[in-house]
Amino acid sequence: MRADAEKNRSQILNVARDAIAEHGADASMRDIARRAGVGLATLLRHFPTREALFEALLCTRLDALTQQAAELETSASADNALLSWFRDLVAFTQGYRGVVAMMAAAHTNPDSALYASCEAVHSAGARLLLRAQGEGTARADMNGDDLFALITALGWAVDQPSFAPRADHLVQLITSAILTNRPGNDDEKAVP
């Protein structure tokens, strides 16, 4: 790809990331092109559909989360690695309204442009879970599919306006159910 084309593509992705964070899946392609300083035709040359633009954004972030999991596997305790990665993945789903449905659909569709990235992030989470289970800090009765389902469900819940203010509390509830033998997991805390 030519240098100017690569620069345009990067600029479009940066602007699209912000626009989608603000407006979700309904972000205007025209507005993204305008904010990126390119014509709509240039945007459409790089990303012929809204879905192609979303897929490029999501693949980039999912691949970063997969890389993060690999780094956490060697640099943090098993339970802290899983907790940190889980929180970051939920934060990612919060940052892109509508992403949960796309991830859930892509997870079982090998024809999806998101499939490889979703499969990689799913496998990375399963490895982190297995490591925590091996150290006795995570429930033994769950697997990577269960973890992915919980993240998806939590991502959907915190995407709803009525649950969004309680996102941190919901993450804490779910992670305390996954991770055992952690300080504070046995404490009953009053919740407003």
Score class of each variant (00 low, 15 high):
R34N: 08
D141N: 07
N14G: 12
N14D: 15
S176A: 11
L173I: 14
I174P: 03
A140P: 04
R139L: 10
D187V: 13
Q172C: 05
Q172D: 15
M142S: 06
P161G: 08
L173E: 07
I32Q: 03
G184A: 02
L43A: 08
T108S: 14
L43F: 05
L65M: 14
L13Y: 06
S10I: 10
T175Y: 07
A140D: 12
L147N: 05
Y96G: 09
S77K: 02
R166Y: 14
W85D: 09
S75W: 04
A76D: 11
G155Y: 09
M102C: 07
D4E: 15
A153Q: 08
D4T: 13
L13W: 08
A105F: 01
A101I: 07
Q67S: 14
L43W: 07
A81D: 04
D141I: 04
A27K: 06
E6W: 02
A149K: 02
F148C: 09
G37H: 05
A81Y: 00
R50K: 15
H23S: 15
V121C: 06
M29V: 11
A177I: 05
A81C: 10
A91L: 09
L129C: 04
A25F: 02
V100G: 00
L130F: 09
F163I: 07
R139D: 06
A33G: 03
A153S: 12
R2I: 10
V15S: 01
P48E: 03
N185F: 08
I178L: 10
S10C: 04
N14R: 15
T175K: 05
I178Y: 04
A16D: 04
T60D: 15
L130I: 06
I32M: 01
A81V: 02
R17K: 12
P183A: 14
A124R: 00
Q172G: 14
L147D: 00
A138K: 00
D186V: 01
R61G: 02
S77H: 11
C118E: 06
R2Q: 13
S117M: 05
V158P: 04
Y115L: 02
T60S: 14
A177G: 11
A157I: 02
A27Q: 03
T93W: 06
A25Q: 13
D145A: 11
V121Q: 00
A124V: 03
G125K: 02
L129S: 08
L170T: 00
W85S: 02
L114R: 00
L83T: 06
D63T: 12
P165C: 06
A153K: 05
L128H: 02
T180L: 12
Q133P: 08
I12E: 09
G144C: 00
L53F: 01
L154W: 01
A81P: 08
R30I: 12
A140R: 13
A105Q: 13
G155E: 00
H122Y: 13
D159Q: 11
A19M: 13
F54S: 00
A21F: 06
E135Y: 08
W156P: 06
T66G: 08
I12M: 02
S84I: 10
A81E: 07
A101G: 08
M29R: 12
G134T: 01
